[in-house]
Design a protein around this nucleic acid. Structure first.
Lengths: 345, 345
DNA sequence: GTTAGCACTCGCCGCCCTTGAGTGCTAACA
DNA sequence: TGTTAGCACTCAAGGGCGGCGAGTGCTAAC
């Protein structure tokens, strides 16, 4: 994708910016008179019209019909996000709001994640999503197996960062609770310090030689655990916010958006894909998902102990308040990183 | 509430039933001609009109405006549910659908619950909700404490039915992993067979005398565990289905419904309240919640080992296909009970 | 290069009229 | 006495029409 900046002189940029700003707020096509008044450039509507005509030709603006104003194209939003946005700072009240609502006394990761999603959605009034910390990249500190019934046990994995996750797994019916405990201690000892993803290849051979007859069972259990742990969960909040925006007043459109969000598949994919980019913005059809054709998704990563361990983001109409969203996300990302840092130290 | 049956003769009943049946399907006011044709009673529209006029006076029908047909009142739905409904049987395909989609190979309670909610919502096309098995009434078989970091541990509680639940709790920083394990074994031994709700009163004194200096800590941990475990979770699926019904084509109405559902508060309350009634139906304003004024909620309980252990249900417009919903719920309740029975035996 | 002026476009809104589904009343009929 | 045909009446919904006004593009003048 080429850099579009060079195509536009400063005046065109300022006019385009004014249009995008206005459209983001009002959701209705912007006319030359409005731009002339709003942007303090001292230009008459006629001049603006000429420029707008050029911008339309260049593909930055679209005209719903001849006698309406213009609305920004996706290309315009892209340029806006890349080069034109006032990278808004949060107001004091907003920063305060976050501080008050992210309760640092909470001592469970899941709870912190839920709170963060809540705050994110409340502040932006869009749909928020937070990917809970990912396991694949974290080192195991402890694996406990707890017998539940004949044939099943609960596996609890604790990582060095303190993030935990649990899953039910099948175990051979022949194992006694004592056996289970023994195996539990063994694999903790062996896996300590490794990533779970490495477990199967690196550690299994060693275990195999030590446990003898139960080797196959242990092997299967470990694979079962790894499979369960590599499933990522995503916390989605405020899906119904979309109904506040006129572009979704059509029930069918709202329906397809909400169904997609409820399934969580696409959102999870986006979050996972973006897990190594500090901040990413997908606008409209940049989402390769027809149901999200009129949406934008903005994501940031968050850290603990210096490593990226998760991603969070916001979904809303392409006409999204990118400046505010990005400011909130930046702030929340560092808040969450702080909290997790302390929580997991 | 008095029984309304006596108020209506058989003909009025049949007419009312025809109207409710029709309105449930079409969502538009039903006129006398339609009733005359649909119900094979051999009565002319004029006669039907006289009866409908009576039914209106008695409060079973309402008229949106003079020249529209009639729509059933809440009172009519109540009568319909109590006395008039064809208590529909599932078709073979439907029963089959359930069998195919409730995967009995799954071995985790949470997963079964999610599947059930999914099937329930898919089959009815309303919003479904399933309360995960409640702890308060179950007996503890094992409590494991797993050290996570200085000051926190994960508590996993396994009940005699095999239902499990876990929570992060605070522990004194001074406790070593070995201490934690010792305490874990101690409280398992002491609590085995008791309900968690009884734990604090009955068992604490005993423990107190045994652990000496750590008594207070153990005491607090147990309270922490009990508090966490008594929180009930509800799985909600298909909230966006509501957008398929014309009565929710208004964005503001849809919004308030979806917000209420997303919060889950009210649904959880209804499910918990209904946890000792085999099947309950709340119609419209019988829900003491303004946002649910135009909804009906139908719930059933499900069992494991002969005891009620949870509740599930459906939320939809008051114009709900009660017959089908109740049939599906009945069938699903017994399927789920079966599966859990096997799973938790 | 900028701007005032002007004719033109076209969606929106309110108005009116027609249509048709449905009602309630009355009178006749079995 | 219950049932029914007939009829006048009501009223929401939908189509057609005209005015309004926001906005455009072009032209000519500064």
């Amino acid at each position: 994708m080429s850099d579009n900046t060079s195509l536009l002189d400063i005046r065109k940029m300022r006019i385009l910016q004014a249009i995008v700003d206005d459209y983001i707020m009002t959701a209705s096509p912007v006319g030359s008179r409005t731009v002339s008044k709003r942007s303090d450039m001292g230009l008459s509507p006629a001049t603006i019209r000429n420029e707008m005509s050029d911008l339309t030709e260049l593909g930055f603006l679209e005209q719903p019909h001849t006698s309406a104003g213009r609305i920004p194209s996706e290309k315009a939003y892209r340029l806006y996000v890349n080069h034109m946005m006032d990278s808004a700072k949060l107001t004091d009240e907003e920063a305060d709001y976050i501080k008050r609502h992210l309760d640092t006394r909470v001592h469970e990761v899941g709870e912190v994640i839920r709170q963060t999603a809540r705050v994110l959605s409340d502040m932006t009034n869009y749909t928020s999503m937070v990917l809970v910390p990912q396991f694949s990249s974290l080192k195991v500190k402890r694996i406990s197996l707890i017998p539940v019934s004949d044939g099943t046990a609960m596996a609890v994995v604790v990582t060095d960062t303190g993030v935990t996750k649990n899953a039910m797994i099948r175990i051979p019916e022949s194992l006694s609770p004592d056996d289970v405990e023994k195996i539990s201690k063994l694999i903790t000892r062996k896996l300590d310090g490794y990533r779970l993803s490495e477990a199967v290849e690196k550690v299994l051979p060693q275990i195999r030689s030590e446990v003898g007859e139960q080797a196959d069972a242990v092997c299967e259990m470990l694979e079962d655990i790894e499979r369960s742990m590599s499933e990522t969960d995503v916390e989605v909040v405020g899906a119904s916010n979309i109904l506040d925006y006129p572009e979704y007043s059509d029930a069918a459109k709202a329906r397809s958006f909400l169904t997609e969000v409820e399934s969580g598949n696409y959102l999870q994919k986006v979050l996972t894909d973006a897990s190594d980019v500090e901040m990413s913005v997908r606008i409209g059809t940049e989402n390769d998902n027809p149901d999200m054709r009129d949406c934008s998704v903005v994501t940031v990563t968050y850290k603990a102990g210096g490593k990226n361990i998760g991603t969070m983001g916001v979904v809303g109409p392409t006409r999204m308040d990118y400046g505010k969203v990005m400011a909130v996300l930046k702030y929340l990302s560092s808040s969450l990183s702080d909290i997790l840092g302390k929580l997991l130290k």
